[in-house]
């Protein structure tokens, strides 16, 4: 069944239409959230929030873009929102620890083991994830969507609501920045 039929089904209160949409996009949505949040439970919670947001705002979908584009855009926004909340929590945790309260927050997921990465690449991927975190948000978005989600530049431009040339430029700068920070990392590693 095509997306348009599923959307009109959802608008008319057809639960099976919603179920089919969820089943069609749940894996990719979860994968996007996982790339940003680097924690399987957080990624699942955020993916659920994406579909709850979709359920609540399906009437606002104007059909100018693909449904997938819309869902992935919500997934990115929700993931970034979650990251901001985590950062705010960390700051609050730091303040609590200053006043003697126990900081129960986990340390940054720098040793994150992405389930989709090939075994022989896991160690390098973990290093790369750590360096991607340092990139500006726009560059991080483009790099993750292209490299981890295997999206084309055209798809990324649609999801991020920007131009193809902007995506190309952001990808170029992301690679440059990563090369530079990885060079520092490996040089210091060699010296140790």
């Amino acid at each position: 069944m095509k997306d348009e039929k599923l959307i009109s089904g959802m608008i008319n209160g057809d639960e099976s239409a919603f179920k089919r949409i969820v089943e069609a996009y749940q894996d990719k949505t979860y994968s996007i959230c996982l790339g940003y949040l680097k924690n399987e439970q957080d990624a699942e919670d955020t993916a659920q929030e994406v579909f709850i947001a979709l359920f609540r705002s399906i009437n606002d979908f104007d059909g100018q873009s693909e449904l997938s584009t819309w869902i992935y855009r919500i997934a990115i926004n929700k993931s970034l929102e979650q990251l901001r909340k985590q950062k705010a929590k960390k700051r609050f945790g730091f303040l609590s620890s200053l006043f003697g309260q126990e900081d129960q927050l986990e340390s940054a997921h720098s040793d994150f083991d992405h389930p989709g990465i090939k075994l022989e690449n896991k160690e390098r991927a973990s290093v790369l994830f750590g360096h991607i975190e340092k990139l500006p948000e726009a560059q991080r978005n483009v790099f993750l969507l292209h490299k981890l989600e295997d999206m084309s530049y055209k798809e990324i431009a649609q999801v991020l609501n920007t131009t193809l040339s902007s995506v190309e430029s952001l990808m170029f700068r992301a690679k440059k920045n990563l090369q530079k920070s990885l060079k520092d990392y490996y040089q210091n590693d060699k010296m140790l």
């Binding site: 089943e23 979860y30 996982l34 989709g116 990465i117 090939k118 290093v127 790369l128 990563l178």
Partner: peptide, 18 residues
């Protein structure tokens, strides 16, 4: 390291997500 994401396999949600 930059190419360590290449050839990754698609990630799937745990069963009974819906």
């Amino acid at each position: 390291t930059l190419n360590s994401f290449d050839e990754n396999k698609a990630v799937k949600v745990k069963p009974y997500f819906y």
